[in-house]
Design a protein around this nucleic acid. Structure first.
Lengths: 168, 168
DNA sequence: TGCAAAATCACCCGAAAGTATGACCCGAAA
DNA sequence: TTTCGGGTCATACTTTCGGGTGATTTTGCA
């Protein structure tokens, strides 16, 4: 249907456009500098600083939240039926599928089904066998799922689906 | 010994010479700019790209949170079986990674780190880039992880790790 | 200080995953 | 009736994964 290529690289395209815009701004600054003064060193330094900052920003944007894992094993008395836990369990387990999000992304029932099995760690071939269809069909489905979830790999799709409470 | 010294400080030496090289390159580019006169676009672009990369590198390298694991040994009364209940409590209250299971399976810190990134849906290449090691290294790690978790695919590994509360 | 474990990197090869494109069927909506 | 979305299947191709094996370097610790 819609060219996958564009949907896949929209972030890159966005960032690229932003970068181009920034360069354009610098170009303007450069013009002013040439008019006013020949301070190439200052100009270069400015570019360097700005783009170093940009790089750091990008990296922090892309990087994971710093997870310093502090494992503290303390005294915990857990009874068989944790009274506090039940509320948490209810909200955790019986979380209904977010119908709104589902509708927004336009995932079809079949695709959701494939997504579920994908999340269970099944291979495409196993999913195909399970659903009595061909491997190619599953590949088509997975491809469409990736586009709709805006991801590139099955692991990301599972991650995304979990975030959106489509599964589990 | 001298080679010993070099081996010990090779990172610092490498980074240092790399930076020097970069400055040298910039100086050369600047010179070229003076000669060619109309190459300021290229010059600016080069600086921008290089320093964007430098910023990314800096952020990732320096801001890398160093895995901090604090283990406080205490008497722990935990009913082993109710995995659902404990899971709900874990996610509801606080982190902690199941240290016992971790030790039983013999997952190393590095492997756990790779597992985390794997769960985020990163490809081996992306993990390698993120951790500043080669693709082959990550492949070795993933292979070892699969053996230890007794799975065959990364999706299964993530699933398994989630069950064992290694992640999230 | 020496050793074992951990971490690193390499190469090969087959399997699985993913991309791109086109086609067909079917039922519902315009 | 045409159009459109969903589901199915296919071919051909590229990329990534995973298994196997072997090697070196780094590091934590007894």
């Amino acid at each position: 249907m819609i060219p996958r290529f564009f949907a896949r690289h929209k972030h890159i395209i966005l960032y690229g456009s932003g970068l181009a815009l920034l360069l354009f701004l610098l170009k303007w600054l450069e013009w002013r500098f040439i008019i006013l003064d020949r301070a190439i060193e200052i100009y270069s330094g400015a570019i360097a600083v700005v783009f170093t900052g940009l790089g750091i920003w990008l990296a922090l944007k892309l990087a994971r939240p710093k997870w310093k894992t502090v494992v503290v094993e303390k005294e915990v008395y857990v009874t068989r039926e944790p009274a506090i836990g039940t509320a948490a369990i209810d909200t955790a387990i019986d979380t209904p599928i977010d119908e709104r999000e589902l509708a927004r992304l336009g995932l079809s029932p079949r695709e959701l089904e494939v997504l579920q099995l994908m999340a269970e760690g099944l291979s495409n071939q196993e999913i195909a066998t399970r659903l009595f269809v061909s491997l190619n069909t599953i590949k088509t489905h997975t491809g469409n799922i990736f586009v709709k979830l805006d991801v590139r790999r099955r692991t990301q799709a599972v991650e995304q689906a979990r975030k959106l409470h489509f599964i589990r």
